[in-house]
Amino acid sequence: MRSASFQIHLASKLATALLAVAGSVVLLLALTRFIPGDPATVILGSRATPEAVAALNARIGLDKPLIEQAFAFFGRLFSGDLGEDVFNGRPVLSLVLGALPNTAALAISAMLTAIVLGVPLALVSARWPGGKIDRLVAFLSVGFISTPSFVVSVFLLMVFSVTLRWFPVLGAGESGDLGDQLWHLVLPTAALAAGWVGYIARLLRSSLLEVLSESHIRTLRAYGVSEAKILMKYALKPAVLPTVAVLGMGFGELLGGAVFAEVIFNRPGLGSLIYDAIRTRNYPVVQGGVFVIVLLYVLTNLIADLSQSLIDPRERARLVSGRGAVT
């Protein structure tokens, strides 16, 4: 794996990732200037006289040309400065770093829960396709996928917070108190993971069935290898490849797209930080938050890509030998 071909492959992926990050930041800077509304009108409300708006925009640097603002953003980036909250001058980096662990914890726990539940369901379904269990899993999976997450969230809150009072509604838990933080994580994780459980179960089941119909599996059966062993040892590994790719994308999506869970459960995460900042046109916070999400999204996809290359023996062989196109 340490051949020149692999290094080229890695360099190419990194370059694409960097371009994606830079491109999205430039696009974001342009977009935020074209949408109507600015922080001055939000801050000043009905007191926003043209003079007051102009004065406030000058104070927070929004009166400068777009290109100057873009250069300033990238210039600051190299020194780890993402700008300041326009309303109170707090460093955006500290806001983003404060929110990121809450979002990351939720995304990781939701994805782990989805894997832990989804993979066994897929295995059971693929083991007895068309059977009662397969039909039940299909029914549940489609149910989980098609029920909007906010409906699941409100249902969970009404049952487990209001009626049973087992889990809290608000926030991410006391800082430094791991038990409390885990406690606050349970309901949003369940709400966010539900759809993914169904999705992984359906996706992996299809891949497993495809692999199980291949001739080498038939050969294994002819040799008398047990179905459980075939499933776990010979079918799961190749079947899991498409799921890994989807999980990579999905994890990135969860980092940026957990907004609904953060809003409903009032978790101070990255999604809700950006959501609030967009509503108040707090551009530096939007830019800083989106930049970090894009960075993480690209990074998780890169990791998923590379993992696929490592798991898939065909891809691995091609990279080692230096033959064939890099995809």
Partner: peptide
């Protein structure tokens, strides 16, 4: 003071006794 943007969330939090 707990900042809660969603009205529905605040009503649920009130019912659950958190606020």
């Amino acid at each position: 003071g707990k900042p809660i943007g969603e009205q529905k969330t605040s009503e649920i939090a009130f019912q659950s006794g958190e606020i």
